[in-house]
Simulated assay, not measured.
Amino acid sequence: MSQQTLSFVQTKPFRHKVTAAWLSLLLGVVGAQHRYLGRRFWYVPLAFTSLAVLGTLVFEQGLDSLFPNLLILPVSAGIIEAVILALRSPEKFDALYNRQSDQHNQHGWPSVLTAVVAAVAFANISLFWLVHIIMAFYRYMGWLDLSVY
């Protein structure tokens, strides 16, 4: 009979750089990349987003109120982090998140394409939010009323 030994050594999972970047791009508003990377305080973006959505639902002031406009912060942070994660060198990424692993990330087309998609998404979302904030300011000042002219 062979003896079985129990090992309590916990091995950390291998974390893929491109997966972390896509999680940051698509679900960065709730901090999914922080959870995937095993960071402490991963729940902070989730709490911030939840409070902004709850404030929007409770106060029912529409899209011109403060709460929906606060969502630009976690959305932008997630997209910017997607670019940073995608373009970070594999050696630095592995040194931070895959210290005890024998596998290594590689830098290639998936990383570059992820960074390009994230940059385009950031440009579009930033312009949308900028126009939205300017229009809300114009409505607040009464400059969009036809009776003013």
Score class of each variant (00 low, 15 high):
V18P: 01
N124K: 09
L57G: 13
L73I: 15
V58S: 09
S24L: 07
T11H: 09
V112C: 09
K92S: 06
L6R: 11
V18Q: 09
I134V: 06
V117Y: 06
H104L: 10
N98A: 00
P74Q: 09
M135K: 07
A136D: 05
M1F: 01
A77K: 13
F128A: 11
S126G: 12
S76P: 08
F59E: 15
N105D: 03
L57D: 09
S111F: 03
V18K: 10
A21D: 05
Q10G: 03
V120W: 05
Y138K: 13
L46V: 08
V83P: 00
T49I: 08
E81M: 15
I134G: 04
L51T: 08
I133C: 08
A82W: 00
L146A: 14
A77I: 15
P13D: 09
S101C: 06
S147N: 13
N98H: 00
R39Q: 07
S101F: 00
L63E: 13
W22T: 01
V131R: 04
S65Y: 12
V112L: 14
G108Y: 02
W143N: 12
L6P: 06
L57F: 05
S126L: 12
A82N: 08
T11L: 05
A32E: 09
G38N: 05
N105W: 01
W22Y: 06
F137I: 15
A21S: 10
L113T: 11
T11W: 00
F14M: 04
R15T: 02
A136S: 04
A52P: 09
P68R: 14
A123L: 13
G55E: 05
W42D: 01
F67I: 13
H104E: 05
L71C: 09
Y43L: 12
L57C: 12
L87F: 00
N124G: 14
L96C: 06
G28F: 03
K92Y: 00
F128M: 10
I79E: 02
R88S: 03
Q100G: 08
A52T: 08
G78E: 14
Q103T: 02
L46H: 04
Y138L: 14
P110Y: 03
G142A: 04
L54R: 08
N69S: 15
L54A: 15
L57E: 11
L85W: 02
F41N: 02
V117P: 12
H34F: 02
I125H: 08
M1G: 11
V9I: 11
T114S: 15
F48G: 07
W22N: 04
L144V: 07
R99I: 04
W129Q: 01
P45E: 09
L113S: 14
M135L: 09
S111A: 07
F14D: 07
V120M: 11
E81P: 03
V9L: 07
P68F: 06
R40E: 07
A52H: 11
A123S: 11
F137A: 12
L25T: 02
F128Q: 10
G78K: 14
R39K: 12
E60R: 15
S50C: 11
K92D: 06
L113P: 12
S24K: 02
A32H: 04
M1A: 10
A118G: 10
L144I: 11
L87H: 00
F67K: 14
L73E: 13
Q3M: 06
P13Y: 00
G28N: 10
R39D: 07
A82F: 01
